[in-house]
């Protein structure tokens, strides 16, 4: 029971509806998934199609995640001047950010009594979804749980981010952008772009660098835990 053209059209069509709604309303926080995911789920439920069949039929779209992660290099390349000028600050903040992200998930999962599957799926949760899914999969997590958690994190960061930045009185535009990008990846960056061009650029490059750093930190941390 595979129907590749139908599932591809359903996915792309639902996604376009979500993008269109965001463009019409002009709300950066109206993530396309808020509309597209319920649409797809409703169609699958009505037609009584199991989730696995949908995923098998859309394997082609899923495949594009790998190449799109590779393509993030162009984003870094475009911002190479910003990176060069702020190298020390960016490297130290991204390193601390990814370590804090992984360790805090471990501590909090203990505190709230969540299983290992949650821990391994959430460790890379501050990273852009495709990288997070790959990292979680190698760590023994569930990529779907990771995808949902990552997007939720993006929402949290984008909604409360500006408020938190005001409380901690972060003035430097690069630091503000880094804070948004490391904690809330793409959604945080959409918000950072509204704050200013420098914030947006810093947040954008933080996405790729945070992904790289977390891909190093997560396996190291898990190795340490296994000792």
């Amino acid at each position: 029971m595979m129907n590749v053209p139908f599932m591809l059209a359903l996915t792309i069509g639902a996604y376009l509806m979500g993008v269109y709604a965001r463009r019409k309303t002009g709300m950066a926080l109206l993530h396309p998934f808020i509309i597209s995911i319920p649409v797809v789920i409703a169609v699958l439920e009505m037609a009584d199609i199991p989730c696995v069949y949908y995923q098998d039929s859309t394997a082609f779209i899923d495949f594009l995640l790998g190449p799109s992660v590779v393509s993030l290099a162009l984003l870094l390349y475009d911002h190479r001047e910003t990176i060069r000028k702020n190298l020390a600050g960016i490297l130290s903040s991204i390193t601390i950010g990814s370590v804090v992200g992984v360790v805090s998930v471990w501590v909090l999962c203990r505190v709230f009594g969540l299983d290992d599957i949650f821990m391994y799926s959430l460790e890379p949760k501050s990273v852009t979804t495709p990288i997070a899914m790959d990292v979680a999969e190698s760590a023994g997590g569930n990529p779907s749980l990771t995808a949902v958690s990552v997007i939720f994190c993006g929402f949290i960061g984008a909604v409360i981010g500006p408020f938190i930045l005001r409380i901690i009185r972060l003035k430097s535009p690069v630091a503000r952008g880094i804070a948004m990008g490391t904690s809330a990846h793409g959604l945080g960056t959409a918000r950072a772009i509204e704050m200013g061009a420098v914030e947006g650029a810093a947040s954008g490059l933080a996405i790729a660098l945070m992904g790289l750093m977390t891909a190093i930190v997560v396996p190291l941390f898990n190795l340490l835990l296994a000792l």
Partner: peptide, 13 residues
């Protein structure tokens, strides 16, 4: 990129 992780996201079902 956002569209490419829709298949994984549907795994939420």
């Amino acid at each position: 990129m956002t569209m490419f992780f829709m298949p994984a996201f549907i795994g939420i079902m």
